[in-house]
Design a binder for these strands. Structure first.
Lengths: 197, 197
DNA sequence: AATTGGTTTGACCAAATGGTCAAATGCAAA
DNA sequence: TTTGCATTTGACCATTTGGTCAAACCAATT
């Protein structure tokens, strides 16, 4: 890893931190430079502009997220086990705090998604999978698209809304962490009960 | 309604629009003034500062949201009917787009919630209600706090993440609206199946 | 008509902010 | 040692932005 790559790595790390915490509009190039331990001029040398740097960070985030939704085929697990694995995987990702970042920025500028989705695989594999379960009568008849939304909602929302949940439920950080400890399992169980015959 | 109140109403409406769409950091006082059809100086005459105006808008939003969670006692509906009403009420609110605003700003500055929650009623009425259902064995044993999170997630997340859902599910605006038409009922049904014995 | 008091505004200000540039620095090859 | 090239940086710039202020405006009262 040459010297330039090291600097750029430091920049990307700092930028990820700042953009995810403060959002595009709340982020200052000077702060990114400070956190990375370099000058603002150097920052602009490596990444031409704020938009440029942001694009990079945002795409990296999407790249971490999008593949998560495609873990439904290519193995012999039962659908219950697949739900278990999906909630576990998604919750682990979502806990990093990247989800609110993605949603916030997509909402600021919907075009951020448009290009990306166009070149994605043909169809949502979760939807296809549950359509099949529906057709073969293995689950209670449910619109697979709604199922997709329910799963995503239950997994993603707690991480996005944790400040509110913490306070409304009057939990200390410790108590909240304890509660979320078993969240993936509880969520999977909730979902499975909701759709099994 | 005197002349001054009219102006302030115009300002509040414009400010709500801007703050909800762009967030605190993305909002410009000049734009609020333009949308309200007055000068920036006049805007500052009525609301001392950006923070001041924002506080007002944010508190109004919270005031619309918080009471929604307390519709669980004081009537003779069955718990299934209460779930139905809750999802319907919450979804109606959430459709207005205020939810992402609230979450985004709380995340920017967690203190926005702290003061408010302290002077709220003693305990979350949904949690109390489902605790009772648990104790009297009317539903499948489930941590009522998790239940609270599940309900909120299923109702709130679609409105927050609609850009993503729309595109990932490859739906036109028309198709998406059709899908969301029956969302409240489908969500309630999903939840009821998940916890009934 | 003159006075008064609330309201509105154009002009202006200071600070913040993304971005540029020429000069300096360091380092490897010749 | 010198040359050449990538990297770094302090100084600087133009624009944006929240906020101020004195002067103008206007409706009601005297």
């Amino acid at each position: 890893m040459n010297e330039s790559t090291v600097t750029e790595e430091k920049i990307l790390q700092a930028a990820r931190l700042e953009f995810e915490k403060k959002g595009y509009n709340g982020t200052r190039m000077q702060v990114i430079a400070d956190v990375a331990g370099i000058s603002k001029a150097s920052l602009h040398y490596h990444f031409r502009s704020k938009d440029n740097l942001f694009q990079r960070i945002f795409n990296d985030a999407l790249n971490d997220y999008i593949p998560l939704v495609n873990t439904w085929k290519d193995d012999s697990l039962s659908w219950e086990e697949k739900v278990n694995r999906f909630t576990a995987d998604l919750l682990e990702f979502v806990q990093k705090g990247t989800m609110l970042f993605i949603i916030r920025e997509i909402n600021r500028n919907p075009d951020l998604l448009s290009e990306r989705i166009k070149k994605a695989k043909s169809n949502n594999s979760l939807v296809t999978y549950f359509e099949e379960l529906n057709n073969t009568g293995q689950i209670r008849q449910t619109d697979p698209r709604l199922l997709y939304i329910f799963l995503q909602s239950i997994c993603c929302f707690p991480a996005i809304n944790n400040q509110m949940f913490r306070k409304v439920l009057r939990l200390t950080d410790r108590q909240y962490n304890e509660l979320m400890e078993g969240y993936a399992r509880a969520a999977a169980s909730f979902i499975i009960h909701a759709i099994k015959k």
